[in-house]
Nucleic acid binder design. Structure first.
Length: 492
RNA sequence: UCCUCCUUAGCUCAGUUGGUUAGAGCAUCUGACUGUUAAUCAGAGGGUCUCCCGUUCAAGUCGGGAAGGGGGAGCCA
């Protein structure tokens, strides 16, 4: 037994390192340790600020004068990767409690200081976006992506703890009838015009890889409903794709979506689930990534100082998150929202670009922002929208005019959740599909849910990147996904 | 896709009514110093002013077009 342990121990020699986060949180001193990481700065030919991505806090490595040769010291440039062994001691300087007094320094990877684009100074987010393959090495993106990880983990923990089944819905789909947006085509046909054609000149997809026209998914909802009709409680969490020519701070062509679907839930259950879910994952991030969120909050505060007084946020990032976790979301119907907007001074003084005149129109983002940021100053759940501005699968209300839909609007980013109670009555559903010219034959499999043991059910979709934006305070959605895809951009 | 603003050194930005050799801070390099905290001090190198066309004796500066980027809108998550 002992021998086995010894072998295992030696086999992992190279990785017998201490993470910097652990080393710094353990305040004891006077022990030997090995660390590996990347040089942030090298000051005074003696002090290396070393970072390994476990935290934004750097470990101060001391290379005492005269103990290391000049060629080695020359290679301690910003960005270089090194392995250091030495003694952890109580720091002789003031900026940190402990530091590592190096006895050996090994250069694992050089970094040419004249060519390495990251410097020990502030960079603009636009510049870092151009070098997205290197931006993980900065404090801001270190924090953003550690928070993103925590939120993703919390998503699974929340649903798993509630007994939901995590369902993997297909990324390549055949249905293009959902109307959720423009789709990316998936084909193995050549693009030089030689693809097989039908007599009328259209492409003959019968000869394509799947024997039919296929696309990248825009939503896993319809497939999710199939599984909810058997498991009762399911959720999906995966990539979705929209080929819309959207150039905004809150749209991506490739983004991750969370879509729970729950049998026997009505609209109110659905709202309760969504609200509980959002609060849970935010709380999880606060509890597990306090340092990162505080760093991002400070970054945001400095950014805010550049803005004129009236455009600044009243709350800090941490206050905003605490507020969301500890307060109920405001719930009101579309009809009530229209009344509030119509009677608002903003509307009467004609400050809206699109004035609210009556019932039935879709809300513009200026209206959503007014409700969330000016009127209620908290997240808002809007329900029971006019049927004409919503999807075919949403459940018709008794009034025959509205559907059991709900949108959750968050301060700063707008719509974060879109959901509904689904239309479980086959006759009503097919009627709506006819009205909206949705080809029922193509969705026969979907309609089977209503033919064989249909039941009331509800679900929602939550844009994961918008959630990450909300929690990190990042203004542009392109900065909360590692490798953003958007019109004219698919680098890395 | 529409509206709007921007593009000058590796980065962040100045650049006057069009006028000689286009500047600063940071970064980089060289040297000094050595318990520093985005170290400090001294010096040096670094520019096809995004590209194309035009107006002019003369364009970084004015006009037109293109490309790229930011912000806003629409579509939505």
């Amino acid at each position: 037994m002992l021998a086995i342990f010894a072998v295992l121990k030696f086999r992992h020699m190279f990785n017998k390192r201490v993470r910097i986060k652990e080393l710094l949180s353990n305040e004891s001193a006077n022990y030997q340790a090995t660390v590996m990481g990347w040089v942030r700065t090298f000051r005074n030919s003696q002090f290396i600020a070393l970072n390994d991505g476990s935290t934004n806090n750097n470990l101060q490595v001391v290379a005492s004068l005269g103990e290391f040769d000049e060629p080695t010291l020359k290679r301690l440039t910003t960005g270089a990767c090194i392995k250091v062994t030495g003694e952890v001691i109580t720091s002789l300087g003031k900026g940190q409690k402990v530091e590592l007094k190096a006895s050996s320094i090994e250069i694992l990877g050089d970094s040419d200081a004249e060519k390495f684009p990251l410097q020990p100074k502030k960079h603009s987010l636009e510049f870092l976006r151009e070098i997205a393959h290197l931006r993980f090495k900065t404090n801001t993106f270190g924090s953003v992506f550690r928070v993103r990880h925590s939120l993703a983990f919390a998503v699974h923990k929340f649903f798993n703890d509630k007994g939901f089944v995590y369902l993997h819905t297909p990324i390549i789909t055949a249905s293009d009838a959902e109307g959720a947006g423009e789709m990316f085509k998936v084909t193995t046909f050549p693009l030089d015009g030689t693809a097989p054609k039908n007599e009328d000149g259209s492409i003959n997809f019968k000869e394509d890889f799947f024997g039919r026209s296929t696309n990248l998914t825009v939503s896993g909802q319809l497939e999710g409903e199939l599984a909810a009709m058997a498991f009762s409680d399911i959720y999906t969490f995966g990539p979705t794709f929209r080929a819309e020519n959207s150039n905004t701070t809150r749209h991506l062509a490739e983004f991750w979506m969370i879509e729970p679907e729950v049998a026997f839930n009505d609209l109110e259950d659905n709202m309760n689930l969504a609200e509980e879910f959002i609060k849970y994952v935010i709380k999880y991030a606060i509890d597990h990534n306090k340092e990162d969120i505080e760093f991002l909050a400070q970054r945001l505060e400095e950014e805010e100082k550049q803005k004129p007084q009236n455009e600044r946020n009243e709350m800090t990032l941490m206050e905003k998150l605490d507020f969301v976790v500890n307060n109920n979301f405001e719930r009101l119907t579309y009809t009530e929202a229209i009344e509030i907007l119509k009677e608002s001074n903003h509307n009467k003084k004609k400050k809206f670009q699109y004035l609210i005149e009556g019932w039935g129109a879709d809300l513009q983002s200026e209206h959503e922002r007014y409700l969330v940021e000016k009127h209620f100053k908290k997240p808002v759940i809007l329900t029971n929208y006019p049927k004409d501005i919503k999807s075919f699968y949403m459940r018709m209300n008794e009034d025959g005019k509205t559907v059991a839909a709900m949108d959750i609007l968050a301060p700063g980013i707008g719509e974060i959740v879109g959901g509904s109670q689904r239309e479980e009555r086959l006759d009503r559903l097919t009627e709506r599909m006819n009205e909206m010219k949705i080809p029922a034959e193509e969705l026969n499999w979907y309609l089977d849910t209503r033919r064989f043991g249909s039941c009331p059910h509800a679900g929602f979709g939550l844009g994961f990147e918008r959630l990450v934006q909300f929690v990190t305070g990042m203004g542009n959605i392109r900065d909360v996904i590692p490798f953003p895809r958007y019109p004219k951009s698919a680098e890395f």
